[in-house]
Structures are given as C-alpha cells and as structure tokens.
C-alpha cells in the first residue's frame, strides 16, 4: 500500500468513525430522554401508591422513592433549598457554586458561581426569599445574591449577623409568615443555652430589633431519638403546616417543631444516610434529604411527605 493510499484510507476511516460517533451521540441523547421520562413516571407512581412500609406519618420507616448520586463537584453537598416555583438549588461546602437540580428526574440543569472571584467560605446552608438567594456561612455571615443563568457569575452582598460567637450555624430557611430567615445553631456558644435547641430569626426588614431567638429544650427532642444531644444540620419550613423541620447529621435524626417551639415529633432518619446535611420539603409532598460525601458519594434521597 502506498503512502498516499494509506493516508486516504486513514482519512476515510476517520470520517466514517466520526459519522458513527455522531449517530451514537444521537442515539445516546434519545436514550437519555427516554430514561428521564421513565424516572419521572416511576416517581409519580411511587407517590400515587400507598407506602406499605410506613408505620406512621414520619419518615423513620419510609422507603426512598428516588435517590440521585451527585457529581464530583457536589461531593460536599451542604445545603439545599426550593425556589418559589419549586426548583431545587444546592451548593457545596467550600465554594459558592450553586447548582439547580431537577429532583424529579435527577438532572443538574444549571450551575452558576457567586462572586468575582468565587466566594470561599465555610458555607453551610441556602435558602430563597423574595427572589433573592441567601447562603449562610458557619460564622453567621449571609451572602445575598440573585439567581444566575447557567455558567454565570453573579455579584453578591454580605450581611453580618454578628452571631459568630453565639453559635456555629449549619441551617438556614425562610419563614414567609414572619418574613424572617431562620438560622439553626449547631454548636451553641452561650453557656446558658447549652441545653436548648437554638434557632435565630433574622427579619428581612426592620431596624435594630430584627433579630430574635427561638429556643426549644433539648430534653424534649433527645428522648424520642435516644441520643444525648441534637446538632441541627439543616432546617426547612414545611410548606403545608408552616412548622420547622430540622435534621441532625451527627444523630441522624429529624425533628419537627412549631414556630412557637413545641415539638411535633422527633425521630431517627432511615438508617442508610451517611452524612445528612441538608433538607427540603416540596409542595408536591416530597421530603428531600441531602447527604454529603463520606464513605459514599453525595446523594439526594427523596421520600414521601408527610
């Protein structure tokens, strides 16, 4: 075979391979589309059928209806929150990179970053209020910004709650009734509050009196879950009742309290959560619990709610 023939043959092979690859890509796209439709159908069916495994209305014995394994850049999944129109936003622990996840089909649909350069902090929780997204750092600093488009980089403003010495924060939610952000305290710094579950309320409007505190005696919580303490990892507001739902990563437990501080229930989470760090409840009756990567990759697990 002459060199010229060899070159022509190689070129033809490359063209043919390229065509095959394109056809393969089209087939893959069709397969993906079909798979996503199947996922959504499966979720709908799970939601419509009664959960025979559940002994009561809590999640303790609930079977997961979906579980999505997070990509590598969301290994340190630290917080999740739902937008007003029901889209799920998630963020990592160290960098202010926000991802939008279609929790019904298991697709990351959008990602954007906050700040020029990207904000780096010990970010623990996220919530949305009045069209603004808030990220909470463990020292009580709030980063406020507007949701960005895919691949965008958005500007932000910071709010210092000056509560860094009071406690180490891990949870953030928005109580629309009070028009206040709820900041759940994981480790309380104040001695006389050591035996309480502490939640700070930070009103979005107001002057000097915008900060208030909700305390719940830990003894009302730790008894039912059989633990000595309860360290909240995240907090969310039940869209049906307005109650506060908190989860604890260390104790792998969940508690629901009323805005007045009465404990509705306290239960263990299902046993296969590795490191639950975030929680959200959707308007279509789904409880979403996010686990940070530890022994296994980060996952989002969906349960029926309530």
């Amino acid at each position: 075979m002459t060199r010229r023939r060899f070159a022509v043959t190689a070129l033809a092979t490359c063209v043919a391979a390229s065509a095959c690859r394109q056809a393969d890509a089209a087939r893959t796209a069709r397969a993906d589309s079909s798979m996503l439709a199947q996922r959504e159908t499966r979720l709908e069916q799970s939601l419509s059928q009664p959960d025979t495994a559940a002994k009561d209305s809590t999640t303790a014995d609930r079977k997961a209806i979906a579980r999505w394994i997070m990509p590598r850049n969301l290994d340190e999944l630290s917080g999740i929150a739902l937008t007003h129109d029901g889209r799920l936003l998630a963020h990592g622990d160290e960098k202010a990179q926000v991802s939008e996840i279609d929790y019904r089909r298991g697709v990351v649909t959008k990602q954007f970053v906050v700040g020029h350069p990207t904000v780096k902090a010990d970010l623990e929780a996220i919530t949305i209020a009045h069209g603004f997204v808030y990220l909470l750092a463990s020292n009580g600093t709030l980063y406020e910004f507007q949701e960005g488009a895919n691949g965008a980089r958005v500007d932000y403003t910071t709010h210092d709650t000056r509560l860094g010495k009071e406690c180490e924060f891990e949870g953030l939610a928005f109580d629309s009734t009070l028009n206040a952000l709820l900041l759940a305290c994981k480790h309380v710094g104040t001695k006389h509050l050591k035996d309480d579950l502490v939640i700070y309320r930070w009103k979005l409007e107001g002057g000097g009196d915008r900060l208030s505190r909700l305390t719940v005696p830990l003894k009302d919580i730790v008894g039912p879950i059989g633990e000595k303490h309860f360290h909240p990892s995240d907090i969310t507001v039940d869209p049906f009742t307005g109650d506060y739902v908190l989860i604890a990563g260390i104790e792998k437990a969940m508690v629901e309290i009323t805005p007045e501080g009465r404990v509705v229930f306290a239960r263990k989470l299902p046993g296969d959560h590795d490191q639950p760090e975030s929680v959200a409840i959707t308007k279509d009756s789904i409880l979403i619990i996010g686990d940070e990567a530890k022994r296994v990759p980060a996952v989002l697990t969906l349960y029926r709610w309530p």
């Binding site: 394994i69 990509p71 990179q97 279609d102 697709v107 990602q111 691949g151 022994r295 296994v296 996952v299």
Partner: peptide
Amino acid sequence: EELTAAPQILQDGLTSGAFQSQAAR
C-alpha cells in the same frame, strides 16, 4: 471556571446500584 456542562444526568442510586461503583472511585 470550576463549572461543568449542564444539564448533567445524575446516577440513579435506587436502580443502578451505583453506590458501590461510585464508592470505588
């Protein structure tokens, strides 16, 4: 950029048994 392309289909942890394979990363 620390950004990956979207949309990105996530692995199904219920059906694929991908926990094990992912753990082996």
